[in-house]
Amino acid sequence: MDRPNLPLNGLRAFEVAARQGSFTRAAIELRVTQAAVSQQISRLEDLLGVTLFTRTSNGLVLTDEGAALHPVLTRNFDEIGDVLDRFLDGRYRETLHLGVVTTFAAGWLVERLPAFVAGHPGISLRLFTNNNRVDIAKEGLHMAIRFGDGDWPGLIAVPLFEAPLSPLCAPELAARLRDPADLAGQTLFRSYRADEWAMWFAAADAACPDLQGPVFDSSVAMAELAAAGLGVALLPALMFRRQLSEGRLARPFAAEIATGRYWLTRPRNKPPSPAMRAVESWLVEESGRA
């Protein structure tokens, strides 16, 4: 098809709907109505003479024709967007969207960003925090820092560093904890990884009590509640050095467990841009010092 005849609006609507798996979510991203998205895709299907989606109760499913078209559009729209981002402030700069688990951002990364900015004036690094559940493609990210074992399908994972977990609490409470068994009478805050406390008690050679404490998806929230004296949180002490040095938190026991590490991840099927390579090199170098 000749370039002047390319149905750009329909192609854009199709790419977003295929990526989001929903006309409703596509409409939100494109800032139009759901009906407008549906109409654009219907016109595209009429023009091409094929069906691009099968509508099911679970959402949109790409047909063979849609599956052939989608990755080509995604790759090219991403490349166009990347180049346009570099001109947003009137000069050529490369913008990089980095997803970061909140604990890592607050406890390690943000304080180091001024050094990165000073050393890389041609890169605009934008952070988007999450609770360790992130989809790079759907959220418009280039890379993401997350915690785990490094095994994420479709992603290249570069190891940064471990951050072992240990109990942290208010200093007043820590002074009353003489033995790991003393934790049995305390509120133990839990994360969505249900086996962490059991692993820690095993490492401390103590029996794990019946766990009844609230479950959180944010280590930062657990740390704030622990600092207020409302319970004990199992946290990566490395990420809360500031609170420990300021006396807001205390570490009553030396025992710790390693349940994973922080990783820098990026899509396997997309070549890294110069900014992505620069961020990776800088993070690996800085994490070596950690």
Rank of each mutant, 00 (worst) to 15 (best):
residue 276 M to C: 11
residue 43 R to K: 14
residue 169 C to N: 02
residue 22 S to Y: 05
residue 219 S to H: 02
residue 2 D to C: 07
residue 278 A to L: 05
residue 56 T to E: 15
residue 89 D to F: 00
residue 256 E to I: 09
residue 120 H to M: 04
residue 223 A to K: 03
residue 13 A to Q: 04
residue 154 G to Q: 11
residue 171 P to F: 05
residue 83 V to F: 08
residue 280 E to K: 06
residue 82 D to Q: 07
residue 254 A to G: 13
residue 118 A to F: 02
residue 58 N to V: 14
residue 144 A to N: 15
residue 225 L to R: 03
residue 177 L to R: 04
residue 241 R to N: 01
residue 103 T to Q: 11
residue 221 A to M: 06
residue 232 V to G: 04
residue 222 M to C: 11
residue 252 P to A: 03
residue 200 W to I: 07
residue 35 A to N: 01
residue 36 A to V: 12
residue 154 G to M: 08
residue 29 E to D: 15
residue 41 I to S: 02
residue 161 F to I: 03
residue 105 A to L: 12
residue 45 E to Q: 13
residue 214 P to R: 10
residue 107 G to I: 11
residue 251 R to N: 09
residue 247 G to N: 13
residue 192 Y to F: 15
residue 23 F to P: 10
residue 284 V to D: 04
residue 26 A to C: 10
residue 20 Q to Y: 15
residue 9 N to Y: 04
residue 187 T to C: 08
residue 145 I to R: 07
residue 244 L to A: 00
residue 17 A to H: 06
residue 260 G to E: 10
residue 251 R to E: 09
residue 240 F to G: 02
residue 163 A to H: 09
residue 286 E to P: 14
residue 254 A to L: 12
residue 71 P to F: 00
residue 27 A to D: 06
residue 161 F to H: 02
residue 10 G to T: 09
residue 201 F to P: 05
residue 280 E to Y: 03
residue 259 T to K: 03
residue 30 L to K: 12
residue 235 L to M: 06
residue 6 L to A: 05
residue 47 L to I: 07
residue 8 L to H: 06
residue 179 D to N: 13
residue 47 L to Q: 09
residue 251 R to I: 00
residue 140 G to F: 07
residue 195 D to V: 12
residue 145 I to Y: 10
residue 202 A to D: 14
residue 186 Q to D: 01
residue 11 L to P: 02
residue 267 P to N: 10
residue 138 K to E: 15
residue 197 W to H: 15
residue 194 A to L: 08
residue 31 R to D: 13
residue 76 N to W: 04
residue 131 N to G: 11
residue 173 L to P: 13
residue 234 L to H: 07
residue 260 G to N: 08
residue 112 R to C: 01
residue 59 G to V: 09
residue 155 L to W: 03
residue 111 E to H: 04
residue 250 A to R: 00
residue 212 Q to W: 11
residue 89 D to R: 01
residue 229 G to Y: 12
residue 65 E to G: 01
residue 186 Q to Y: 01
residue 209 P to I: 09
residue 264 L to S: 09
residue 101 V to W: 10
residue 28 I to R: 15
residue 217 D to P: 01
residue 97 H to Y: 14
residue 14 F to G: 05
residue 277 R to K: 13
residue 248 R to N: 11
residue 117 V to M: 10
